[in-house]
Write a protein that binds this DNA or RNA. Structure first.
Lengths: 244, 244, 244, 244
DNA sequence: AATGAATGAGCGTTCATTCAT
DNA sequence: GATGAATGAACGCTCATTCAT
């Protein structure tokens, strides 16, 4: 019955610790910054022990990616299911995205590292499919909301512009912004104080640009976000150390 | 005065060759794909000779980065100096950005790869400053146009929104979009055909969202771009194999 | 008295299984091909259990060697006890040798592999003695027949030539031949078709060279062998898939 | 002109030293006994230096094999070209074989190790061909002498016995004998004193068995060998520390 | 008796860097 | 200025062995 002996628990905990350490290393030093040796010695265990948990370095990196990737998708799903008009739900997605990136600030570096370094060669096709599927789900969720907005007459896309194009715009902007924040340590020096506020604003402005009703001037989506974060993501919000 | 002996010239040329090779290697194999050995042997010189040009691997990478950033900065500057209303000049910046990423995909890709790895520890503060300065210039150029637009009453930013915030929006969107295009082979699979067209449109929509005059419906910026690319970047345009 | 509880029996059986697996591994991958890990997992037991049977890897290998040598010694003994003139009994030894190498090619191959690697340092003197004893018994058995032949006046060795020298000749020839067959895929390419027939013939020719009566021309030892294999090794013969 | 700078010479010498050490290690510890680490430290150089000479462990082992393999073939060729009747020339081959094995006592272990351990997988097809070709040449040389003997009516092979079968007998016997001597440290304990004398005698006896004229009793081939070794292999004979 | 997690020395290999020539 | 041999730390990884449970 009791399958979780103290030993098993300890092992589980160590696995978490390994990933924690690994994440720190990858984040601070990139792919090469992750050394099996260093993890082992910093954990106070032997090299071999690491290999009882992960059968190669790439597996660790992939585990790191999947760990957070799934969280984001789940957050997107929750936001999409919120009961309100499409633009608010879309705003909820924005809240989810920001919350996610602030809770897991390293995710984007991980994502890029995994994509840019030749890790894929050493992984199975299934893994690749898993990541891609997660991506497609996220895109699909947002595209669904866009289509809702269109169906309800809140937004009309010009000829030749697909809902995916709009999604692509939002995705690009957030992906790019978070990526810039994560990799460029000079954001504020470049005059971009409060980058998160800027992102929030810019995404709303983009929707305004598309003429999505109600416009930002008709409804205070910035205030709305404060409500959303508490309603949809109470736990995540609690984890957030800094103010929203 | 300028005594460029044949020998000096040969050395210069080799330096260029080194960087060319290095870029190819980084692009195809990431940071680890760059091997001093391979460069030397492909160049037909000895390992030691490389060290007469660059005192360590990181210096090479940094040189690559600077090279890349310089090209873009120069293109941005050209676009910014174009004689037209601010929004058109801003559109010119967009043209420059797209042209850059399409003409020099290796530069773009390399830039991303390099940012992920921690080369910074081994480099001097001055180098870091140099890169940062280049970045600031790019941001400054765009921010300058935004300020022009504001000064001429073409756009009014809400309270608390700095010109840099708008720049950040544009930068994020393009950076993110190009990054997605470059690394994710799933762009079209996700339903995003013609991603470059989408980017062009989305940036204009963002400006529309800010109420920047003239709006997209008042002036056909898509057609404008075709003019701009020919006028500002005739040579680059000629190099572009595919249609604009 | 002999209390073989089911448990004890199970343990015995497992020991056999371990050796079977181990032999397969050594044969297919050499000394390094033998992995305690693989044995354990293929057996469905844990690594530690293996150590209840053998205190180290070398012990397993030694056990394999002893097993192999015991089989051959037993076959030699049976041949030596056959009731006939010495040269026929010697021919029976040849039959035994060939049968052994053809029935248990893995045993033969393993024997050679094991001899090459230095397992001896990690083993006790007793073990070494055991193996050596087995070898001496085999030599002794054959030497005994030679002495019988001498005593019965069937063969006379020149001055300075011991019976062991003749044994050495037979042993060398068969050992060398089987070894060449087993490892060199070039036997037939070298023009040596039917190598086993050649060995049979050459050993008889050697005895002829020693003038051992009756000579090959006086008695058809090739036909004799067909009889011997059926009479002395009926079971082994039955196992032999190919024709004799 | 002077292409052998002192440095180059030193490098050459080290290569020799590496192979010497490697041979010792392989001989005493088999494939696993050869450690790149150990070579380096025992040579007083770094691990990396070894890799300037040989690009992997297997290359070293193969180099060891080829080193001696070629020597043997050359010795066989010299013996075969000796001007005398076939049986004497064949005896010369025997002298060559013995001389070779006594000068390079480890060759047979090497040969077996190379064949038994899975080294071939990591080597090129050409290497394999080279080794096989050398083998075939040796066989061919001996088979040629046998055919000479047949042509001159000195020996008549029974129906169904090819010259290669006789070669196979000689080859087996020497290969086996030397292999036993090399791998079994118990030869003398088994009652086989003077194994080399036994081999010499047994090969002659085998030829006698085939009825090859002149027989051993008609011509003292043992005395002949003493002449041959001095005439055909004066230098090798000088290197031989022990008495012939 | 059985487990299997932990060990840690060892492996072969790579490669940025140095420096005597 | 050019060479390239030498370096040696670091890498990812394996596996026989131990031992607390």
């Amino acid at each position: 019955m009791n399958t979780l002996t103290p030993k098993k628990i300890a092992i589980r905990e160590r696995e978490t610790r390994i990933l924690e350490l690994a994440r720190r290393m990858v984040v601070s030093g990139g792919y090469n910054g992750l050394g099996l040796d260093s993890i082992a010695s910093e954990l106070g265990v032997s090299r071999g022990t690491i290999y009882n948990h992960f059968k190669c370095k790439e597996e660790i990196i992939l585990a790191l990616l999947v760990e957070t990737m799934d969280i984001r998708r789940e957050m997107f799903q929750r936001a999409a299911m919120y009961q309100d008009i499409p633009r608010v739900r879309l705003t909820g997605i924005g809240v989810a995205a920001e919350l996610f990136v602030r809770l897991y600030p390293d995710h984007f570096r991980m994502e890029q590292i995994v994509r840019l370094d030749s890790i894929w060669d050493k992984t199975t096709e299934e893994r690749r499919a898993l990541v891609k599927s997660c991506q497609m789900q996220c895109v699909g969720i947002v595209a669904g909301i866009v289509r809702d907005g269109m169906a309800q007459g809140h937004v009309t896309l010009p000829d030749g512009v697909t809902p995916e194009a709009l999604v692509f715009g939002l995705w690009s902007m957030t992906e790019g912004a978070y990526s810039i924040i994560a990799t460029s340590d000079a954001v504020t020096e470049l005059g971009m104080s409060e980058p998160f506020l800027s992102i929030r604003h810019n995404t709303q402005v983009l929707l305004d640009g598309y003429g999505w009703k109600p416009l930002l001037e008709e409804r205070d989506f910035h205030a709305e976000m404060e409500v959303l974060v508490r309603k949809i993501f109470p736990e995540e919000f609690a984890q957030l150390k800094q103010v929203w």
